[in-house]
Amino acid sequence: MAQCKDCERFYVLEEDDSRGDCIQKGKDERQAYFYTKPVRAEHEADGCDSFHPRKN
């Protein structure tokens, strides 16, 4: 089962490795931007469209 921490878009928090940021590049018809949402490292990511397995 994939988890957020296995994703290359997951950036772990230094002070708490159970949490991190899911950072992505977004684009709409008017602008491009980087955005982030806090996630738990062990959050299930199987159904996530944005999941990109981390390359080791």
Partner: peptide
């Protein structure tokens, strides 16, 4: 917990 963004 809200999503935050930085526009190019």
């Amino acid at each position: 917990n809200k999503t935050v963004f930085i526009t190019d």
